[in-house]
Structure formats: C-alpha cells, structure tokens
Design a protein around this nucleic acid. Structure first.
Length: 563
RNA sequence: UGCUCCGUGGUGUAAUUGGCAACACGUCUGACUCUGGAUCAGAAAAGUUCAGGUUCGAGCCCUGACGGAGCAACCA
C-alpha cells in the first residue's frame, strides 16, 4: 500500500500545456483555445500523425475549445481526393471528431489572393521574372546573405498587372512567381523574400481550373489559422525556423489583438521502422509491402489491420509525451500498450499454429465431450464457451520434445501435462517418419483430472492449448515481425534503409488448426490465441478459409531463456 | 562557418519552477498461476554532456566549450 502523501503530486504538464495555460492566464485571444489538425491530402496517415491528432484534439478538449480539420491542399500536383476519405476515416477511428468544421486551405484561395494583392499595394510583395535556378542562386547560403532580385523594385502597378495576368494563364509555369519583399540578408533563409505564389496549371481537386496561381505553404498555413480563429497552431520541430515568417504574415494581416501562435513539438520516431511519407510510399510502390495497409506498416490503416486498437495507440501517445527533444521511441512500448489493452478485452481461444497430432489411447473412440472454458480470466463478464474434446487432438509442435532440457515443462516421453480446460495426459510414446520427424504422439488421460473433477487440482508443471482434430478448423496465420532489422534504419548516412529490411518480417503459416467457435469470426475481430499471442481476423479471411494476423506475441520467458 | 532548437538510467519522459533526481517501458530475481500470459514482491541501472560562475544550496540561473538536429523545394 502506498501512503497517501506519496501520491499527492499532481500530474505534471508538458510544455505546450504550460504555454497554453500561460496564454489563458494572460487573457490572450479572449481566453479561447482553438486548434487545428492540418493534413496534406497526399498520403495515408501514420502513427506520427496520431501523435499530432491526439495533441491537437486533446488540447482543445482539455481547455474547452474546438479543433478544426483542415486539409492543407495548396499543391494540386501532389494532392488528391483519394486521400481525403482515408484521412477522415482514420481520425474518426482514433476517436476524435471535428463536428462540422471540415475545412480546406483551398476554401481561402480568394482571401489569400486578396491578401497578396494588398501586400503588393503596400510594397511588400513583387513579381519576379527569374527562373527557379536564378532565384535559388540569389538566395545565398545559410552562411552568406542573398542578393536582391533585379525585379525587386517594380512599381505597384506593374506588379499588380503581372500578378493578375499570372492568374489568367498568360504565363507558363515557372516563368514568374510572387515573392514577399522582406530581407535578402536575413540570417533566416525563410525571410529572404520567400516565394508566396507560383503558377500551376494542374487542375485542383476542389477548385478545378479557377486558379492558375497557388499559394505556397508559408503563405497559406498561418493565414488559414488566422481566418479560422485558431489560437494555438501546433506543429513539428522542423517548422521552428518558419515561425518568424508565420508571425510576419500575421503581423501584416491582423487588425486587432487576436493572433494565432505557432508552437513546435517533437515528431514521433519509432525503432525498427521508417516514418517519412516518402519512404513509406517507396515501400508501397516497390512492392516491399502489400500496400499502405500492410500490417507491417506504421500507417494507421496498417496498424488497424494488424489488430491495434485506437485505445492502445492513444495510450502509447500518452506514454511518450511531448517535448522538443528529437527522440526515437522503442516499439516495445507500443507493444506494451496493445498487450495491456487486449489482455483485458480479447477473448481467449485455442489456435494451434503448427499442429502435432496427439492420440489419447485410452479415450473412447468416437466420444466427444464439450469442455466449458472461460473466455477471459481478466473479465468474468465475457462468460464461458464450449470447446469439443475427442480422442485425437492437435497440440503445438513446439510443445513436444523427445529429449527435453531440464526446465521444459511440456510434453515429453513419460511426462504429464494439463490440457487447458480438459484432462491431464501422460505421454506414453511417439511415432517418427523416415526423416526423424515426430508425426504423432501417444498419451493416456486420467479421467479423474477433468477440469472441475475430483483430481483436477493435481499439480503438473505445464498446461497446453489444444484443439480436437476432427472439430478444428483450418486457418492461415500471418506472423509479422519488425520490417527492419536495424533500430534506426534511416539514421545512417549513405545507407539506404532498405539495406536493413528484415527478410523474416512476414511468415505465412498454413494448415493451422483453430477451435470451431472461430467459424464466424469477422474481419478486425481480435482474440488471444492462448499461450501464443494476440490475433486479428484479416480482411482476406472467408468463413471457409480463415486468415489471422498476429498483432503481437505474448511475452514468452521460455523463449527468452533459450535465446 | 550564419541562424534556430536540443543534451537527465538502455529507451521515453518527470522533478511542485533554486531544495536529498521520480515514473513508465525494457532488463534481471523471486512468489503465484489450469496461459512459461496476467498479477504480486523486489533488484540492477543516471548523479543530469563538460568546465567555470552565482548561491547556504544548481538538472533548473549565467558564461564558455563539446555533441546532436533543423534551415539554402516554384513541397508541406
């Protein structure tokens, strides 16, 4: 028992909560908290996004505010509606809602245009006729200041005329851009007259061909925040250097005391995987994995298919916290989170991955008993089920050894084990084939030791799971392991992460035998295969050919000892 | 060699804002168990990157090193 005084310390707050509470205490923005989650619809969400989603929606919820969903769709060449639906599905699956606040940066193209025009009129933006290459050369380097463009001092009238004509399609892509007129000598590269509009003639998935010029990220994001009344714009660390520009635009835009504030936190990295959209896309395109929802992918749809629950992902995100340190989180913590969740929730069943036939020689032929077995020892409310038992059963190949070491508590010649929920059996012999493989084990059972029976309490070292040979169902089981064998596959300079691909990341096991209660298991149903791990029914599963994905193994101290 | 940010057990985070470095995962013991799971009890593991300074007192403040990350897309 813990003494009360040991547990009085309140939960500590992370730096973003502290910042928000400080803003609140200073009465900023009328005491409102309003956040946004701003995905670009150019790919699927991964667990790193989950970290951002939990923060954006979580802070709004905690401080009685709202969180908008806003698609950052400023680049029609890369984005597509295809992704919009999957992004929405994944956010909802995680358990968050944006209610009716589904917005798009493209909703603001008109207002952004007007703002750009206003900057031109104030002498704060100009059209540059130079090529991308020339502009880039003039930008200088982080250690050398840039040079001013020869077009930097055009007249307002000329700038306005050119900007309008850019949008009418008069000029080719790449021939002209609109730049903010800030400071080519700034130590911050982003302040060196950043490009804010470029000509793009690809139709936009929402605005069609209305626009021929599109705003850049820096010219869209902060302003969209402003238009929506966002108070706290939370993003990852790499945008830290953009903040002065974010603030600069807000300064030009604001008309009263309201202003959104950008705060940056650390991105999620996981051991033994890659997280960048680009690298994940490569894995998909090159067929290294079966798709975005391959159960080995750190995408939300992949994790879902693997058998992860939204609760476990939120729990994991909660455990890792938010800081400004670039960290790499151990997958074992994610695995802990899903085990913890499924331990309480997943019904237990018997599934034998690599069947070995056991014949109980003194058990009556053709006899069948229905054994009543608890569904979840952690949760009495899940009730009990009947599992048929008969003379011929299957057990796990690994659960028999001809010449076992000392601490092997399972089946071996002369040894006794408990069949979970049934009888204690004793091994009396076994049969080998020409290759020396054990193909059949012979046992006798003790009728007095049936669960609940008079001798049921007799102590035996081991307990095995089993299925009745004739009653069991055939199944395919997909065993997943980490996709990469290196802890930080993208952390090596000059080495392609794919050098570290784990060839054993997927093992397909066919001919597994599972108990008959699984006959009508549906995709996404989750079970604990007793003594083995947690499994989830795959989308490929059919009533007559079941397919299970292994979400995560049970902890296995026996396997660990034998490493 | 510019600017910005970051350095706390193996990993991720805490430290009531200057008061004996705590928690979780992982690791290792042991107990219990009709899951070698779960549960329970316990252990090892950092003296806070380094060097100065301020202070009665520094992981927190100051100075300087060292180390790491980001920034030079008409990407976000």
């Amino acid at each position: 028992m813990k003494e009360p005084e040991e547990i009085i310390r309140p939960d500590s707050q992370h730096f973003i909560e502290q910042a928000i509470e400080k803003d609140l205490s200073e009465g900023k923005n009328g005491g409102r908290v309003h956040t946004r989650f701003p995905p670009e619809p150019n790919g699927y969400l991964h667990i790193g996004h989950a970290k951002a989603i939990c923060l954006d929606f979580g802070m709004a919820e905690k401080y009685g505010g709202k969180c908008n969903l806003r698609f950052d769709d400023t680049n029609p060449t890369k984005e597509d509606v295809e992704y919009v639906d999957s992004i929405k599905e994944d956010i909802q699956w995680l358990g968050f809602t944006w209610e009716d606040r589904e917005f798009y940066a493209s909703d603001y193209f008109g207002r952004l245009w007007d703002f750009a025009v206003s900057l031109i009129k104030r002498g704060l933006a100009y059209v540059d006729d130079q090529s991308a290459e020339t502009i880039s050369d003039q930008k200088g380097t982080p250690t050398q200041p840039g040079a001013e463009s020869p077009y930097r001092n055009r007249t307002v009238v000329e700038n306005l005329d050119l900007f309008y004509r850019m949008n009418e399609g008069e000029f080719e892509e790449g021939s002209r851009v609109l730049r903010a007129r800030i400071d080519m000598a700034s130590p911050n590269m982003h302040m060196r007259d950043p490009i804010i509009y470029r000509i793009l003639k690809t139709p936009h998935h929402r605005t069609g061909t209305t626009w021929k010029v599109y705003p850049m990220y820096d010219f869209a994001h902060g302003q969209s925040d402003y238009f929506e009344g966002i108070t706290h714009s939370l993003c990852t660390l790499e945008f830290e250097v953009h903040r002065p520009l974010y603030d600069w635009f807000i300064d030009q835009l604001k008309t009263d005391d309201y202003r959104p504030r950008q705060i940056e936190f650390n991105r999620l990295n996981l051991t033994y995987t890659v997280m960048s959209k680009r690298k994940l896309l490569e894995l998909v395109k090159d067929g290294v994995v079966s798709g975005w929802d391959d159960p080995r992918m750190p995408t939300l749809c992949g994790l879902r298919r693997r058998g992860y629950t939204p609760e476990s992902i939120r729990r994991f995100v909660d455990l890792i916290g938010y800081t400004k340190v670039e960290a790499i989180n151990d997958v074992s913590l994610l695995e802990y989170a899903i085990r913890e969740d499924l331990n309480k929730r997943a019904p237990r069943v018997f599934g034998v991955l690599r069947p070995l036939k056991v014949i109980i020689t003194n058990y009556p032929e053709n006899n069948v008993e229905e054994m009543e077995i608890e569904n979840n020892p952690e949760d009495e409310a899940q009730g009990r089920r009947l599992v048929p038992f008969s003379r011929e059963i299957y057990v796990e190949k690994d659960d028999f050894m001809e010449n076992p070491p000392n601490k092997f508590f399972r089946l071996a010649p002369g040894r006794e084990v408990r069949l979970k929920g049934a009888y204690i059996i004793k091994c009396t012999g076994f049969v080998k084939d020409d290759n020396g493989e054990v193909t059949e084990v012979h046992c006798t059972y003790d009728p007095e030791t049936r669960s609940g029976g008079p001798q049921a309490d007799r102590k035996v070292k081991g307990t095995l799971h089993w299925v009745s040979a004739v009653h069991s169902l055939d199944a395919e089981v997909r065993l997943y392991d980490r996709l990469f064998s290196d802890e930080d596959p993208s952390g090596h300079k000059d080495i392609d992460p794919r050098e570290f691909l784990n060839p054993g990341s997927l093992t397909i096991v066919k001919g597994c035998r599972v108990e008959p209660s699984l006959a009508d298991a549906k995709p996404l149903d989750k079970f604990q295969f007793q003594r083995i791990g947690y499994f989830c029914v795959d989308n490929d599963s059919r009533p007559d050919s079941l397919v299970f994905n292994r979400t995560v193994q049970l902890k296995d101290t026996w396997a660990k000892q034998n490493k």
